[in-house]
Simulated scan of single mutants.
Amino acid sequence: MFRVWGKLIKDNHLMKDTVICISDYEMTRTHKVYKALEDMCYEFDLAKPVWLKKNKDEFIHHARTRFTADNFVEDIDFDYLDFQVIEEEY
């Protein structure tokens, strides 16, 4: 099971959160990450954010990153989307 926790944060308060579970063991880790982000954005009714170098580096080192207004093409009504892997099984 691959689980990712997503949180919308505004003014240091949790606005919404969700846990996305992916149980397809045939997918690569990268595909699971992108699928989880896509599912999360669908659930939050958001456009998918753009992965910047900063996000890729944070995610590689910590399995966690924050998507801010710089990552979104549209205006957002929150400060950031926190995206964190909470469980990985191979």
Rank of each mutant, 00 (worst) to 15 (best):
M1L: 00
M1A: 13
M1V: 08
M1N: 02
W5H: 13
K7Q: 06
K7S: 03
K7V: 02
L8I: 09
I9W: 12
K10S: 06
K10Q: 13
D11F: 02
D11H: 01
D11I: 06
N12W: 01
H13L: 04
L14M: 07
M15W: 04
K16M: 09
T18Q: 03
T18S: 12
V19D: 08
V19A: 12
I20T: 00
C21G: 12
I22Y: 10
I22F: 06
D24T: 09
Y25W: 06
E26P: 05
E26T: 03
M27C: 12
M27L: 10
T28S: 12
H31K: 11
V33P: 14
Y34Q: 09
Y34D: 11
K35E: 11
A36H: 04
A36D: 04
L37T: 00
E38F: 00
D39T: 06
D39G: 10
M40S: 05
C41S: 10
E43M: 15
E43F: 12
E43D: 15
E43Y: 08
E43C: 15
E43R: 15
D45C: 15
L46A: 13
K48V: 11
P49A: 07
P49W: 06
P49G: 02
P49I: 14
V50I: 01
W51G: 02
W51H: 03
W51F: 14
L52D: 12
L52F: 07
L52I: 10
K53A: 03
K53S: 06
K54I: 00
N55Q: 06
N55V: 07
K56G: 10
D57M: 15
E58W: 02
F59K: 09
F59Y: 02
F59N: 11
F59V: 10
H61V: 08
H61E: 14
H62V: 14
H62E: 14
R64S: 14
R64N: 07
T65G: 02
T65H: 12
R66H: 11
F67R: 03
F67H: 14
A69N: 10
A69V: 05
D70L: 13
D70C: 06
N71W: 08
N71A: 10
N71D: 03
F72D: 12
F72W: 06
V73E: 06
E74H: 13
E74T: 13
D75A: 06
I76Q: 14
D77L: 14
D77M: 12
D77R: 14
D77N: 15
D77W: 09
F78M: 08
F78C: 03
F78N: 01
D79L: 11
D79T: 11
D82R: 13
F83M: 12
Q84F: 11
Q84R: 05
Q84C: 01
V85L: 10
I86A: 13
I86F: 08
E87R: 15
E87P: 04
E88T: 05
E89F: 15
E89C: 08
E89V: 13
Y90H: 15
